[in-house]
Each structure stands twice: as C-alpha cells, then as structure tokens.
Write a protein that binds this DNA or RNA. Structure first.
Lengths: 220, 220, 220, 220
DNA sequence: TATGAATGAGTCTTCATTCAT
DNA sequence: CATGAATGAAGACTCATTCAT
C-alpha cells in the first residue's frame, strides 16, 4: 500500500508527498523542536509536551517516531551528524593551504551561537557525559575523523613551513578550543559582554600562523 | 553544666567545635556532595536524597542549610568563588613576565578535570544558562575581574615585546579556551583518547609567545 | 474510521458521551469525592490520593481537572453554588406567606446533616476562614442575596402582622441559626444525643410566629 | 525536693514561683499560643514551631508539657473547660427568672468572637469531629450539664408562664444557636457585613419571651 | 496514523518528633 | 529542664509513557 499511495496524493495539487516523506518531515520537525527545548532547558528538565507543542504535533505522536526521550536525544545527534561528516570528508580533500582552509571555516562560524549547530554543540557539551553510547558514536563518526583530518592539514602546514609551532599537530583539538569558548561564553555571559566569535577566531588563526615564513616568502 | 562546659571541651585536645563550626562543616559537606551529584547527573536529574546520603546526612538536614535545590546550587558556586577571587587578586599583582605568569598556572591545571574546580567549571558550563542570576554574580565577581587582569598582563606583554600578537589583548578569553576544551574533552571523550591538558596548555602558551623576541634580546 | 464514528455511536442506545461530557462527569466525580474527604478529614489532612481513589481515578487525573488542592476546594463550592442560586431566586419570587415559605423549607432540611449540602456547609464553616477569596465569592453570590431575600420576606411578614417581632428583619441570619446549630450538633454530639433538626426547625419557626394574629384571624 | 524548693525561690524578691508554678505558667502560655495558632490555621496546618515561637519557648519545650500535637489540642480544651463548668453550676443555682438569667449572659457574649472563648468554640466546631474522644469528654462535662441546666430553667420559665413556647424545653440547644451563628458569621463574613452578636442575642431573647404574659400578669 | 486523556512512579519539600548538649 | 539541630515519614505535584478512540 505504502509505495503506491503517491498516486492518491498526487491528486492534491501542490506537494504530493508520500507517506514516507511526510513521516520524515514530521520526524525532522520533532527533532528540531527537541533540539531547541533540550538545549534551552536541558535534557532532564525539557518536557515532552513542550517538544510536541513546538513541533506542532500531539504528545503521542512523538512516540510514533521515537521510542522514548532518550531516543529523541539520539535522533538529534544523528540528524546533525550526517551532513557534518560529508562536509568534513570533502573539506580536507582539497589540497589548499592550511591558512586558506582554516579561514574558509569562518563563514561556518558566523552566528554559530544562535544556529542549530551551536545548539547541538551546547547540548553535547552539557549532556554528553550522561549519554556514553551516544558520545562514543559521535566520537567515532565525527570527532575522530575530524581530528585526524585536522592533524593531517596541520602536519602539512608545518612541513610546508606555513606554521612554525607543532602544537596543532600534537593537539589538533586546539583548533576548536576558541569555538567552544565562544559558544559557551555567549550562552553564559553574552548578555553582559558580547563576544564576536568570528573575529576572535580570525585573530586566533592569525596567531597560529604568525611569524611563519610565508610560502614563497622563505626566511632569508 | 552549661556555664562550665568550657572546662570540659578544653580537656579534649583537638576538635572542640562550636555549634557554628559544626554547622559550617555540615554545610561544606553538603556542598561537596551536591557538587559531585550535580556535576555527575546534572542539576535536574540529581536527587536530593543522593546528595544527602553522599554528605552523610538525612534528607531534611539539607533544608536546614539551604532553602531549596536551587539555593544548594548557588551554595556551590559561592563556596568556590570566594577562594578564587583571593587567588586572582593576588596573582596579578606580582609584576612577573606574562610568560612566567602563565606558566605559573600550569600546576593549577594539572588534574583539573578530576578536581572539584573542574566539576564547578563543568557545572557552570552545563547548567549556567539556566541560572541567569547566579551566572551574573559569577561574571561580575570572577570573570570580569579575571579577564581585566588578564588583559592587563597581556597588554604589558605586548608592550614589552614579549608577545607579538595582540589577540590576547583583544580576546583575553582565549587564554582559557584550551582549558575549557580540555575539561570538556576529557569528560566526553577522555575514555577513547586521553588528553594531557597540562601539556596542551604548555604547548598553547608556547604558541602564544613563539617567535617573540625575548626581552633582553630586542629585535635589532 | 474517524469520519464515520458517528454511525457507530448512534447504534449504542444510551451513553454516547462526547469527550466533553465525560470530562464533566469525571470532574463531578472528583468533586464529590473531594467533598467527602475534605469534610471528613479537613482540607489540610485530606490526601489527594484518597480523593483520587474515592473518585475512581488516578492521582494525576485530578490535576487534569484542577490546578491544585486549593482549586479542588474551590471546585467544590462552585459546583454547589450554582444550583443554590437558582433555588434562591426562584423561592422568594412566590408571594406566599412567610410561614408557608419557611415551612416549605422543611423538606430541604430533612437529613441535611448527612447530605452533600450539609457537607458543604460543614466544610465552609470549618475551613472557610482559610480561603478568604472563596468566602467572598460565596458571600456575594449566595449569602448576600439570600439574606436580602429573607429580609424582604420577613419585612412583609411583619407588615402583614404575621410576625410580631422584627428580630428577623434586623438579623435575617437568625433564620439559619438553628440549621447551623443542628448541623454542628449532629456532627459533634449526634452520637451521644441525636437531634431531630427538622423538628427543631419546625419548633423554631413556630416560635417566630407564635402568638401572631393569623392572617384571616385578625385580632378581635 | 519539689515541695520545698519554694524556700529557695523565696529569696528572690518578687514573684517567688515554685518550679510547679513556673511549669504551670509555661503550660498556660503554650496552650494560649496553640489556641491562637490552631484556630487561625487549623489543627493540621498549624506548625508546632509557630506555636513554640508564639509561646516564647523552644520547639522541644512543648514536648516537655504535652506528649504530642494531639495532647496539646486536648490541653486547650481542658484548660478552658474547667472554669466553664464552675460558671455553669453556679449560674443555674440562683432561682432568678429565665429572662434575667438569659439577659445576664449578654456581657459574656460581648466580643466573644475575638476572645479566647470564641477561639475555642471555633476550634471545636472546626476540628471537633476529628477528635471523638475529646468531643465526648467535652460533651459529658460541659454540654450535657449545660443543656440540662438550660432545660430546667426553660421548664421553670414555661411553668411560671414567662415563656409560652416549649421549644426551648424540647431543644435547649436553640439558646446557643444564635451565638454559634454569630461566631461563624463574624469569622467568615464579618469583613463584608459586620454583625453585632450581642444585639442579635438580645433581640433573640426578646423573641423567646415575646408576648408572654408577664408573671403577675397572668392570662385571664 | 494521530490524538490527548489517563496513569502512577518518582521527587522535592515539609514538619512532628527525638535527643545530644 | 530547655534547646534547636537532626531525622525521615508523609504528601503534593510532575511528567514520561500508554492506549482507547
């Protein structure tokens, strides 16, 4: 039945969604709502009813898409992880200079603190420790690969003389440190003292590459 | 008996605690227990009964010292803030070189992720956004001052030529970015990939001062 | 199924309750149970769980209908007030003689101490002072009007020479004094000495009209 | 020891209270405080700590005088019952006319609603049903005797022709009905419509004796 | 599928009572 | 005797989850 229902809905003019598509949309709406609620109130304090209301569905509907509250939490990460991986794998492939590569991240960083991606990071930071399995998945799928890629880029940069310090090779996490700091700062203290994450990141990258003999501009 | 009790307590060598002292001890024990529970389970998910058990008191006893769960949370921050301020004010006063000053922080960082101080930071990161007033207090009392001090040190370092980049002057938060990153990393991914926060910090500081003409070795 | 369910429910003869009707029934059941529990144990000592059990619902269900324990208390009065008003307004309209009117109340009084109306009165007497707003509503809606009506009837009776004393005109509350006394007596001392409230009331009314020249039997 | 301690305290100039006397005073203070709290908040809702504070003693002290909360409640009634009985027994003995006797009660009624006696009555009305044993004692000791006395007076009044109706003989409770009504009214609705209990009582008594051929003015 | 009324386990919080000082 | 810190049983209320419609 499912596969052919498209025929029926085709009679309605506009979207013509299959049952599966509609389900996917619903799921997405729920995930988005959950992300907002969880990141705002915290996992434990967020109420399923509020998630439902925000997603525009009834309380029971959530349970048609997610086994329970925890599964909903997992759903959030999954939904965000997928596109991230793609982006990652692609990004490193290009043999650009590390500086160009890092600077190229800047647009992604702009307004991150008010974006869903920022919410996910905040959520992971706040609640991750309570969900070991999820965190492991996230580590295996995103972090591990991301850091490996980063390390490669950093090593390349050092080899090419773009970067003098090997700090980033030894601790590739350092690249994201200011980002985390920025997100946390904004969420906690942004009201009192705004922080331009993008500018901070820019300054940070310059710091990393400071003084390094530019390629083609070898130190005499 | 009352009037002469001084005599009795004088005979017991060590403890001889006044009622007030005992109350303060109890409070401290409860705060420590609460810090552990809150940071482990999260504020909302932590159970007062577990806090009590961990502190070795009865459920009701907590309420003799703290109005409610939220007041307990506040108590944690307060108890930690006080010594921090003192440390801060003292630290900057000394006119040491920035490098020496920053390197001097290293011992404080060692094992921070498994220390109460690390717990407090984690707690603040995770739950701070849900306690705006507390966060404001913390900002006014600790962060604002700390950053101002940092900025001054950084500016001095730049003026003296110890540090080339002014990134730290513009974004003093950057100094703590690796620390946060380290704490978060350890709590989330430490199982999979240990991170030596101290070493990372050391490398980071070297990064900041890299290439800078050493004082006494002024650029010709 | 949804669209045609009307057909199904039409086939079942009697109940066919809409969701709203069922909710109203539930509310009523809860109110009745609460009245019983509150009047038996007192507001503070009554347990919500017992109310629930008595109403045949789960604890949580009460909170779907009433915000909290106090709202439940309010619900009791509201549910009882409504019919009372109607009765009041109607009763006085008729221009009967005061004696006939008062004697007409007797059936209402019979067994009042074991009726829900008696429970409400007892509840109001016992707990009313702790719920000033509720009491005000009750006063405005029931008492004030009732007394005004009573006063009018009493005045008419005096004017017509049915009643000699003007006590009831000045203190219309007096009419209900024996009723209250009866209810209180029964609840406190009924075990030791039964009291026939109806008979007492009858005697009391005779007392009020004693010796008064009967209409149509004018004093010679 | 107890009996002779007076000698010691006699050395202090003024009060010179024996241990027993001081204990009695404490008890009395506690009872008075409890009466106020219970009648204000209700038995269940009243807090022992508030009673203690009001009595100017520590929480634990109450338990030196009363076994538990219920015993405290009993203590209230006991403390009030004793003087009442004496008054009763004495009052009836005198062979005065019923009218004089009843009118003689008026001073006792003045301001009863704001007096401790009023509080006790209110307390008994509100909570009595929850303390069957206490109520029984009260009935046996106060009510039963009081009513019997009342009945005797009423009978005498009827016999003497002072009162025509035998309502009061059959239902001696009727005499106190307006009093109860007045106390309840004042506590519930006094804010909206003040009620002069004394005046009402006066009118009520007149009602009882209205029209009765005055003694010495026998009906022809 | 979608709904939301119903459930009841789980938690915070209160407060009568005890007892070491 | 007096105190008040400590206890822990008890109860109001919440909310994840189920299920009849």
């Amino acid at each position: 039945m499912g596969r052919h229902s498209k025929v029926h809905s085709a009679s309605t003019a506009a979207p013509a969604k299959t049952r599966t598509e509609k389900a996917a949309e619903r799921s997405a709406a729920i995930v988005i709502a959950a992300l907002a609620e969880f990141s705002e109130k915290g996992f434990a304090a967020a109420r399923m009813e509020d998630v439902a209301r925000r997603a525009g569905v009834a309380k029971g509907t959530i349970y048609l898409h997610f086994k329970d509250k925890q599964a909903l939490f997992e759903g959030i990460l999954l939904q965000v992880i997928t596109p991230t991986i793609a982006a990652l794998e692609h990004g490193v492939a290009a043999g650009e200079s590390a500086l160009a590569l890092f600077k190229g991240l800047l647009p992604l960083i702009r307004d991150i603190d008010s974006s869903p991606r920022g919410d996910v990071i905040r959520l992971l930071i706040s609640e991750g420790a309570r969900f070991p399995e999820l965190t492991e998945t996230h580590y295996r799928v995103v972090i591990e690969r991301g850091l490996a890629a980063l390390k490669k880029v950093a090593q390349r940069a050092v080899d090419r003389g773009e970067m003098r310090s090997d700090a980033l090779v030894r601790f590739p996490q350092l690249l994201s440190a200011p980002l985390l700091m920025g997100i946390i700062w904004t969420s906690l203290f942004g009201r009192f003292q705004a922080l331009d994450i993008e500018a901070m990141y820019d300054a940070y990258i310059d710091l990393l590459f400071q003084d390094a003999p530019r390629p083609g501009n070898p130190p005499s």
